[in-house]
Structures are given as structure tokens and as C-alpha cells.
Design a protein around this nucleic acid. Structure first.
Lengths: 264, 264
DNA sequence: CCAGACGATTCGGTATTATCGAATGGCTTT
DNA sequence: AAAGCCATTCGATAATACCGAATCGTCTGG
């Protein structure tokens, strides 16, 4: 499937089960034969796997009858997953301060299979109703968070930029080389920018977060309406402060991070 | 594990994989042999399963080396799971209004294997830093949400009350019969109460939410500091309004729900 | 109201597949 | 420096999951 050169010792049924979960992740509700067709397997095989997943609450069939969806057990699992992340625990406090100071929503993101996954989200402090964004995934090339993570993780970059880049808006940069050029600047400033490249009307700035060993493990972003673009020095300053504080709490030796040896 | 009288056609490796996820959910970080001991299986078997899960991001080994934790893919999956819930989509709007009106945090909960899982959480409107509670699970017998869900779902009640009830605080009711008695009152009022039965300093009131077919599918609660207990009529009124509005949006024919035929 | 088709589900034989035990390698501990 | 612990690899074995066909239920169209 991917560029998985290594690893051929995956257990078949678990592999298939995971693929089923991934399929249900894409098209929210599917029938057995639909899944079977997608995986090119006999329906009876898929049925056995789905029922096994269902027994553990990992999938559920909706009352309507014959269609399956992701199950509630995933929610509990993910909740525990979030609790195991030191980065998140440490970041929450500073992100809340950052949101309060700037008046904007903030996000914490990490890499997941070449994309960015939002690990924590602190809402805009106004009383507005806002969707929780934790768990959202965003293409790396179209987000400030992603650009920062790409800039400091070569493996991530080659992975993410080797496949076609989706155009989410008219301003999305879809040429891998142009994205790569931008990363140079990201490293120089230890800041990533994005102006309506993922969502129209929404722009963001991000900064890297380092762990004990000095590696960049996450990024924190301020998300603002595009009509407030570009961010003021005060916003950028607060962002840098937050990123530095979180990194310090994690035991990072330096901040901003020492860029990895450029391949040029 | 539970009282699963039926179902003996679960695929072994998937069953084991799910159990491993559940174990990691309990004790956040475990080694291979630790898992093997818990499942009474040879380490090599467990290793194979864990590696397969790892290949899909369902578990991850922490940089430290030889311990495994739940993986980031679970977060993305759960995020999609939440999106598939009509109840949640409909409830969010009304819950936000409820939080604004009352000044308290609100929760939306559903049943998961005899417990309550928090499906949505709207923070207190003050600027305080607050943990996101979505994904949290709470014992049914010790929460207002749980009592409401128990009151209208006989299967849930027999399931949850057939096993020993944990005492989370001094005020937790641990006698199944006493819990059951309380449910009668819950049905009469279409309201569940809980005063420091789960967390010291925290109390809550909950109301049922019905779906198209009239069945109770979830419950919504207002969570308040115990020093504000008992809730004012205004709070209870707002809660009932919210529950009724959500149910109406879901197409429920009546509210409050018609109680199921009591077994007396 | 009936006939037909589609999809989910069940069942049992077969061979593929996961499992397991033993051996290796890496790491920390004493 | 040695020893123990733990993760990991490998290969033979038989237990296991897989698959195809048959069944059941439901929805569609006549």
C-alpha cells in the first residue's frame, strides 16, 4: 500500500481488520459486501472480521440494520491515548494562556502517517460555539503545523511530499518542490505560516516544540480568521513564548531547535 | 469478560488484539512480556499481534524503547466516530446554549458496555482552563447520566448492576438494589441526580434524550460544583428544555419519554 | 399481494495461516 | 565483567481463519 519497504510479518486478519477500520473512517457507513468489494475479499470473510470487531465495540451496526460504522470503544481508547502524551499534558496550560492572550484558537499537532493530527485544541476565548478539533487530520503541506513538522523531520517530508498533494483551496501549494523550498525559511525563522491554504477564511502560524532529546515532536499553532492576517508581532511573540515554554517543560536543551543538517 | 452468553465465532487474533488494546487502555504503558503474562500467552505470539497493530498506528512504542502505548490512529478513528453520531451533531448547539445559560459545563453521554461514555462536552463559559472530557467513561451507577440511561434501558441496567459496584467516593451507592430503587424516581421525573457520588466537589443533573423511535439513546447533564448544589429551578428548567429540543431535532415523537413497562 | 433479487448471515471442509518453543540479540543490572 | 531480563527472530506444526455454497431475511418491482 504505502512505501513500506520493510515488514512483511503482519498478521493477516489483524491487517484486514485495520483496513476495515480505515475504510469506515473514510466512508462513514458501509455494508458487508461493500467492504468486501473494497478489499477484494469474499463477504463471508469480511463478515467474520466485522463481527469480531463489533464484539469489542470497535465497530457498531446502526439500528437501521445492515450498515456498519465505527464503534464507541474507539473513543475511550483515544481518550486514554491522549492522556499518555506528555507533550499534550504539558502544552495544555500554555496553550490556554496563548489563546487568552491572542484571542484566537490554538492547536497542537503531531505527525501521523505523513499528515498532521490535532492533539489538542483550545478554543477562541469568546463565547462562540466551536467544533472540537482534536482528532482532526490536516495535510502537512497545507498547514502551518505541517510545514513546521516537515521542516524538522526529513522522513516525514520525504513521505508526505512523495505523493500527490491535494489542493484544498485555490491557494494550496501543490508542487512538492515549492513546498520544500518554503521549509528552508521555516527552519530559519522557526515559524511556519499558512494563509488560506487549507480552509478559506482561515490562516495560521505555527512554531516547533522540542522534547528532551532536542528533537521536534510536535508543533503549536495560532489559528485566526484571514481578515486578521498577517499576525501581529504580539501574536507571533506569544506563540514563540508558548512554544519555548512547552519545550522547556519537556526538558528540551535548546529552543529554537537546531535545524537538521540541510541536504544542500 | 462480560456476560456474553452468545457469540463464539470471534476470530482469535482479532479478539486478542482487541484485548491488548484494552489492556493498554488500563495500564498505559506495557512491555511485551507483561502483556503476554496478562493474556497467558507466549511472548512471541503477543509480539506478532502488537507489531501488526503498530503497523497501522493503533499502538506505538515509546522512544524509550521497549514499552508500548496506544497509537495515534485511534485518535483519528474516534474523531470520525464522533462525526457519525447524529445525536451529537444535533446536541452540540443546544448544549452550548445550556452552558451559556447556566454557567456550568454540560456533558452528553451514551452507554458503552455498561458504563457511560462522554460523547460531547461543553465547557463552563468562564475563561477557566478545563480538561476536555469527551471520551471519558464513568460508572453508570455513580453518575446522573448513568442513572438516566439505566432507567430507560433494561438491558443496560441488568448488565451494569450485575457486577460489583465500585465506590468512587464516600457517597457512592454501591448496593445494586438501592440503585435500582432510585431508577423508579428517575423515570417519574425524567431526571437523574448525583451529588458527589463520582467525584468529590462535583455534582450533576441529567435528562434523557430520545430518538426517532422514542427510545432513549443518550442523556445530557449539567455538571456543577457541589457548593452550588442543589440546582436551581432555572438550571433544571434549562436542562429539560435542552433535552426536549435535542430530542425534537432527532425526530422523537414525545418528550419526556414513555417509561418502559416496569417489571413490578 | 406475490415474485424476484440483493445482501447479510450461517455452516463445514480445506489449506493457508497464525501460533508456539527454542534460540538469538540487545540492554540494563549487580 | 557477568548474568539476567526482555524483546525479537525463525521455522515446524496443527490449529485456525478462510472461503464457497447454501440459507435466511429484507427490500423492490410487477
Amino acid at each position: 500500500m504505502g512505501a513500506m519497504t520493510e515488514g512483511e510479518s503482519v498478521i493477516q486478519s489483524i491487517d484486514r481488520a485495520a483496513k476495515i477500520l480505515a475504510l469506515l473512517q473514510g466512508s462513514r457507513r458501509m455494508g458487508i459486501s461493500e467492504l468486501a468489494a473494497a478489499l477484494d475479499l469474499p463477504p463471508s470473510t469480511v463478515h467474520g472480521i466485522v463481527k469480531s470487531l463489533q464484539a469489542h465495540g470497535l465497530v457498531a451496526q446502526q439500528p437501521s440494520g445492515n450498515r456498519y460504522v465505527l464503534g464507541p470503544a474507539l473513543l475511550k481508547l483515544s481518550s486514554v491515548y491522549l492522556d499518555t502524551l506528555d507533550v499534550r499534558a504539558r502544552a495544555m496550560r500554555w496553550m490556554h494562556e496563548l489563546s487568552s492572550r491572542t484571542g484566537f484558537a490554538t492547536r497542537l499537532g503531531a505527525e501521523l502517517f505523513g499528515e498532521v493530527i490535532v492533539i489538542h485544541h483550545d478554543r477562541r476565548p469568546d463565547g462562540t460555539e466551536q467544533m472540537p478539533e482534536t482528532g482532526l487530520t490536516i495535510p502537512s503541506h497545507a498547514s502551518a503545523l505541517g510545514k513546521v513538522l516537515l521542516a524538522y523531520d526529513a522522513a516525514h517530508a520525504t513521505d508526505a511530499l512523495s505523493r500527490p498533494l491535494a489542493a484544498l483551496t485555490a491557494d494550496t501549494v501543490t508542487d512538492p518542490d515549492r513546498v520544500r523550498e518554503g521549509l528552508e525559511e521555516v527552519r530559519r525563522q522557526a515559524l511556519g505560516f499558512e494563509n488560506e491554504e487549507a480552509v478559506i477564511g482561515e490562516s495560521s502560524v505555527a512554531a516547533p516544540i522540542c522534547a528532551e532529546d532536542g528533537e521536534v515532536v510536535a508543533a503549536v499553532a495560532v489559528v485566526m480568521p484571514s481578515n486578521e492576517w498577517p499576525p501581529t508581532d504580539a501574536v507571533v511573540g506569544a506563540l514563540r513564548d508558548a512554544a519555548r515554554s512547552i519545550s522547556r517543560d519537556l526538558g528540551a536543551p535548546t529552543w529554537p531547535p537546531r535545524p537538521p543538517a540541510p541536504a544542500g
